[in-house]
């Protein structure tokens, strides 16, 4: 009996200490990263309850184990066996039935929390998201804007309709807590109500190939005014761009996510950099040398496997694109400006 009392007290003590320890590490009540969406509140709440129960269960097993190890240790020279105790049906039933109750309670809480996370606001703003190796593009259908940054207004639900151009990706902003895979051939939906203005990042969470680690684009939660200004700016930029060939080329590049693989600043991503691309002499993987001109660029885009640049994988990692002659000309005009 005395053993049970001691263990009981120790279990309660350890439970409290474990929970406090988790909390100090920032893993129970207040979690890093900051919670920046309405949905994350419900998720963090459930998490916190789980941490409490986990602290208790942890102590419930570990304390009697350690206690037995210390108190019921075989002393030196002792050859006796332990007490002959085969089992206890009542105990077994108790520790089968009580966990079943816990399961039902947490399944209920989990279901409720899922309901909170998926709650639909009929006024939600729709934004289309296209994922591709290794970047994201965001399209605002109301304004005809295409952007590689996601801007959303604070305290308004947005619904992202997401699809992929190639393989499976996954849309995750840790501060929003929610994650949704982006699958080719269908649209998946991501509802979020940001509550904290700030700069975040969408980080692709489903392995999608070589540069998966870098598939991160900016997600910016704006105040309503900033958001409106940004939209107005983008509409203006799009209008101006459509007036010149290189501007149109730049739009095409943005819409097709080329910069997910081609950098503009000289670093090597999945594909060669576009800095000083036009007129550059490039070695191919068959040893031949080619000076980059209109014909070569057109070929590279329409049929990437015709020539593969030395040190890059064959078959090419670049998908074949379909463009009209005029569009190709516009892209070339844009590439010429990258000096």
């Amino acid at each position: 009996m005395q053993h049970f009392v001691v263990v009981g007290i120790l279990v309660i003590l350890t439970t409290v200490l474990t929970y406090l320890g988790l909390d100090v590490a920032g893993l129970a009540k207040h979690q890093h990263p900051v919670s920046a969406s309405l949905q994350s509140i419900s998720i963090d709440q459930l998490w916190n309850w789980e941490m409490m129960v986990i602290s208790f269960l942890f102590s419930l097993i570990i304390v009697p184990m350690l206690y037995s190890l210390i108190v019921f240790r075989q002393k030196k020279g002792e050859l006796e066996d332990g007490e002959h105790m085969e089992g206890n049906a009542t105990l077994e039933v108790v520790w089968t039935v009580v966990p079943i109750f816990l399961v039902v309670i947490f399944a209920y809480l989990g279901g409720k929390s899922l309901g909170d996370v998926r709650r639909v606001d009929p006024q939600a703003v729709t934004i289309f998201v296209k994922a591709q190796q290794f970047t994201w593009t965001f399209e605002y259908p109301e304004y005809g804007i295409i952007s590689s940054e996601l801007h959303i207004p604070v305290n308004k639900q947005v619904v992202l309709k997401m699809t992929s151009a190639d393989v499976i990706h996954s849309f995750w902003v840790p501060e929003f807590r929610i994650k949704q895979d982006v699958v080719p051939g269908r649209y998946t939906e991501y509802r979020v109500t940001p509550i904290l203005v700030g700069d975040y990042k969408v980080r692709c969470a489903e392995l999608c190939g070589t540069s998966h680690s870098y598939m991160e684009n900016a997600v910016i939660v704006d105040t309503q005014e900033d958001y409106d200004t940004w939209i107005a700016e983008q509409v203006e930029i799009a209008k101006l761009a459509s007036l010149t060939p290189e501007g149109q080329g730049q739009l095409l590049v943005a819409r097709n996510g080329c910069t997910g693989c081609h950098s503009l600043n000289g670093t090597r991503l999945t594909g060669p950099t576009w800095l000083n691309i036009y007129g550059r002499e490039e070695e191919m993987n068959d040893g031949s040398k080619i000076v980059i001109d209109d014909a070569y660029i057109a070929e590279s885009i329409l049929d990437p496997n015709a020539h593969i640049v030395a040190t890059y994988a064959s078959p090419s990692q670049m998908p074949a694109f379909v463009f009209t002659d005029e569009e190709i000309a516009n892209i070339i005009a844009y590439l010429k400006t990258l000096k």
Binding site: H3, I61, P64, M65, S68, L69, F72, R73, Q74, E78, E80, D81, G82, E83, M85, G87, N88, L91, E92, W95, T96, P99, I100, L102, V103
Partner: peptide, 22 residues
């Protein structure tokens, strides 16, 4: 977690009042 829990509880109960060597 229910059948898994049974295992843990049974192991702890096995250790209880044993003559444990390590």
């Amino acid at each position: 977690s229910v059948p898994t829990g049974v295992k843990f509880f049974s192991w702890v109960a096995t250790m209880w009042k044993g003559r444990i060597s390590t």
